[in-house]
């Protein structure tokens, strides 16, 4: 199962904190993060990369972006 993190509308650095928490706590190798700004998108992608995750897909949505990250 893929965990989805809804970080839309949250100020810096909460999207990154939520993403890192999910990476640390979760057993899932795949995560989906929803964000509403380009800044959050870049920050989450940078944080994911720092944890050895790769960005599978970034899909623009009506109210932001859907970022899928995964680790082998």
């Amino acid at each position: 199962m893929t965990t989805t993190i809804d970080a839309r509308g949250l100020s810096c650095p909460q999207p990154v904190i939520l993403t890192l928490d999910a990476i640390k706590n979760g057993k899932d190798k795949e995560l989906v993060v929803l964000v509403d700004t380009d800044t959050s998108k870049e920050n989450v992608m940078r944080a994911a990369a720092s944890q050895g995750y790769r960005v599978e897909a970034v899909a623009p949505e009506a109210d932001g972006y859907r970022i899928a990250i995964a680790k082998d």
Binding site: P13, V16, L20, E42, R46
Partner: peptide, 18 residues
């Protein structure tokens, strides 16, 4: 996204020096 507070915060919080 230049931010002087974020500069210090990200370093302290995540070890992120971007």
């Amino acid at each position: 996204r230049f931010c002087t507070m974020g500069a210090i915060r990200d370093t302290v919080l995540f070890g992120q020096t971007h």
